[in-house]
Design a protein around this nucleic acid. Structure first.
Lengths: 130, 130
DNA sequence: TTGTAAACAATAATGATTACTATTATTTTT
DNA sequence: AAAAATAATAGTAATCATTATTGTTTACAA
């Protein structure tokens, strides 16, 4: 039976204001301003719980630590392989790839996760000191 | 200037015989039979080097440790979310999703990585004691 | 064969995440 | 509204995967 907690509420609220997919560490540093002695473990535990509850999304990009997204509406992400930033990408559904995969797989395909990679606008224009 | 090493050769050979995408730990345990005092660091270093050289492929699935694939031909992977195994999937190219992504992204899309997830045949039939 | 640079084994260090424990906050029962 | 029950917390230790360091060995070229 999951109880309410102000810390969890604050974590969720914080994610709702951010569009840059912060890491657990970043969430921790920011939530700390409201809860000065919150612990990093609490942040991790609540990020996991919120993910299980489907209230936020966890992004495991394979590059650096996991990131978290307060937007659970279906959308994709682009990883800039120069500055490392993760940007949202709204494209029409590509769920037909699941159907395609199903035809070649001897089992049940339930879904996919896809990350695009490339260079963000700022890096192309050298705006990011990189 | 990269020199030849029997350890690296052995790691590459081992991966060529395996189709289950072993972890660094598994590679280590197996190569150990031929090189009893190889160190785990050597395995990691060579797996990274071989990946950079494009002679093997690294799979960062976001679930558990990284895995390695001796097959560098373009193909996809399916993660069984019951037993955790990673299976190969040969499907026709889905690179059109990069073009689709490009139309909505203010930057340069260079590629994507996609993992499918679901249940493998054995798990559907309860053959995997799970 | 000998000099040099790359690769090694052994091990320490790091970074991200999870586990433990005694205390505190939230909810339920009286 | 007070007390009992229990989930969540802060603080901290532990774990897991991976990378870095260091002194020694191996590959290869002069």
């Amino acid at each position: 039976m999951t109880k309410h907690s102000r810390q969890r509420e604050c974590i969720k609220q914080f994610l709702a204001t951010r569009y840059d997919h912060p890491t657990a560490e970043t969430v921790y540093l920011n939530v700390k301003e409201k809860f000065p002695n919150i612990s990093l473990g609490t942040v991790y535990r609540n990020l996991s719980l919120l993910t299980e509850l489907g209230e936020i999304q966890k992004l495991s990009t394979g590059i650096g630590p996991d990131r978290f997204d307060g937007n659970i509406a279906p959308h994709y992400h682009v990883l800039c392989n120069k500055c490392g930033r993760v940007q949202d990408l709204e494209i029409e559904s590509i769920d037909h790839i699941d159907t395609l995969a199903s035809t070649q797989f001897d089992g049940k395909i339930e879904g996919h996760f896809t990350y695009f990679f490339g260079k963000c606008r700022d890096c192309l224009e050298n705006k990011n000191n990189c």
